[in-house]
């Protein structure tokens, strides 16, 4: 099978069936989690300052769940309604947006303390979307320019992605540079066919305390693994069979808050819908 981005536009490829399959596959969960941890490491956020992050191409929330777990507040954007629907079902904490990153962002300057993007931007080079669109370089320029302005100075954006050629890496890095980013490519485990991972590590205004491009990881990936598997087991323990998180907020609590609002004399408290506190399903 060729790579997904060569098969169909993202919001078609990640339809209902694939979105579920993708999210429930434990091996995939593990890979996306590992790459998210690594991206966070490369973000090099100042310690002890709780950050507000953007998850670009957040999908069904496999990367976002790690952000939740690590205590970050975040917003996520994705073009595939079915993926976002799964994210709602899994009750990730971040605010979600249905958005084509090739159309650019409207976030005000300096909105985010950092951005991550796991397994997404190769899509900008390939299959068209079914929405109106323009050429890949135009989309990349629009994407990087509006992202650069949405990030605070200094900060970083870290993208794990799957380029299919050096030319693609070249095109992406040159568009990023044109948009004002510094930084470059970091390759982990370059000598292992299986473990090799490519990260684009971009800096706004020097990228923070350590201005040098981080080094890629070398050697044996398996050694790091055990620890992370432990973490995953912890994560999955908190979920029931359908992947929903246990201990979700009870409807009772929400109603209590609404009552409180009314008591405090607030008008216009939205009426209790029968959906209040229910699992929300996305119908786009």
């Amino acid at each position: 099978m060729s790579r997904p981005e060569l098969q169909a536009p993202p919001e078609i490829y990640y339809g209902d069936t694939e979105a579920k399959k993708y999210t429930q596959n434990t091996r995939n969960q593990q890979i996306q989690a590992d790459m998210t941890y690594r991206a966070l490491e490369l973000l090099n956020l100042p310690p002890d300052e709780p950050a507000f992050l953007l998850d670009i191409g957040c999908g069904s929330g496999l990367s976002g769940e790690i952000l939740d777990e690590e205590g970050y507040i975040w917003a996520g954007v994705d073009i595939a309604p079915s993926m976002l629907e799964v994210a709602l079902e899994r009750e990730v904490e971040g605010d979600l947006f249905l958005q084509d990153i090739g159309q650019g962002f409207g976030f005000r300057p300096g909105s985010f303390d950092g951005a991550i993007s796991i397994s997404v931007i190769q899509w900008l080079l390939n299959a068209e979307t079914s929405h109106p669109t323009s050429s890949p370089p135009h989309r990349l320029n629009r994407f990087f320019t509006t992202l650069h302005s949405a990030l605070r100075n200094p900060s970083r954006a870290v993208f794990q992605f799957y380029p299919s050629s050096d030319d693609q890496i070249q095109l992406i890095t040159s568009c990023a540079q044109k948009a004002g980013f510094g930084g470059g490519i970091v390759v982990d485990y370059p000598n292992s066919n299986k473990a090799k991972k490519i990260f684009l590590c971009l800096f706004v205004g020097g990228g923070g305390p350590q201005q040098q491009l981080p080094k890629g990881l070398e050697g044996d990936e398996e050694v790091d693994r055990g620890v992370k598997f432990e973490r995953r087991r912890d994560r999955e323990r908190g979920r029931d069979k359908s992947g929903k998180r246990k201990n979700v907020k009870a409807r009772d609590w929400i109603l209590k808050k609404k009552e409180l609002y009314r008591k405090r004399g607030k008008e216009d408290v939205p009426r209790d819908s029968k959906f209040t506190g229910r699992k929300r399903r996305a119908v786009f």
Binding site: L88, L98, Q103, P132, F284
Partner: peptide, 16 residues
Amino acid sequence: ILNGIPNMLLAEHEIG
């Protein structure tokens, strides 16, 4: 905004 998710997609003539 549907089910808590704002639709930020633009029409062709609206894309910068």
